[in-house]
Amino acid sequence: MTELVQNLIDGLGRGSIYALLALGVAVVFGVMHLLNFAHGELITVSGYVAYALFNQGWSWFLVAPLIVVVAIITSLVIERLAFSLVRGASDFTLVLTSFGIHFLVSAIFIMSVGARVKTFSEPGWIANTFAVGPINVEVFDVVVIGVTIVTLLATVVILQKTMFGLALRAAAADFDTARLMGIDSNKVIRGAFALSGALAGIAGVFWLMRAGNTAPSSGISPMIKAVLAALIGGLGSLKGAVIGGLALGVAEVVLRSQLPGEAAALTEAVVFAMIALLFIFRPQGIISVSHAERV
């Protein structure tokens, strides 16, 4: 029981980061039908900027908000330079474009700063824990879960209460009709990328805090987690993306603690295999967004 609660807290901490990333993927998918394999690169770019600032002697308190800003700008730049040119193209083209960006960004870092991992120091409090009865709670998990809750609430407010949020939801539901209502497709798509970048930036702060380093290939892992979590939840469903992220985090932690011996090292493989199974039996993900075909 104690172990279960412990795992749950750890899992939710981890899952919160995935949830924020997946939500960003889902927001963009909603308006553009793009499965964004370049999403992890927002963290790679932020990581290098953070590294450069740490070298200048900046502290985490100053760097953290800047990471979010950098992620938003990067997201917008990528949209402008690449995705805006393939709007409305086939799924095949969209997926490969995002895959190409993912690869290009990491290649540019390899070329310009080299393939070596750049390390920086994690914030001092990251390893602190406090005891609640028999359970050891990491301060980091509490912070992550807290910030995630606040971020999700803010996102809900943006989506529900602002005209931009309304436009975004309308465009995701029916893009053509949204345009007929006077919604500017450029603005709504850029807005979606900005929101997606902001969410990735906040997730990125925690990701980088925990990792304590950055490398050209840093984007792969968050990208995989984000895309898979969004898919598990059911593409296009924002609620699904959050649930998918949390589920992925908890599944990882629980499996790691429950699998015997050498198999524990295979946690990720088991999780991926489970996801494949999920899609074999429920191709639309947990929450389905129906697309009826008119013949």
Binding site: M163, R169, D176, T177, R179, L180, M181, G182, I183, S185
Partner: peptide, 30 residues
Amino acid sequence: PDKMLKAGLALVPEHRRIFTDLTVVENLKV
């Protein structure tokens, strides 16, 4: 289409195409 709308032309599309996930008032706000 958005420029047409701003010019003063609005279309009620075939099959209505209301945003089913949005509330009535949200549809109107859009």
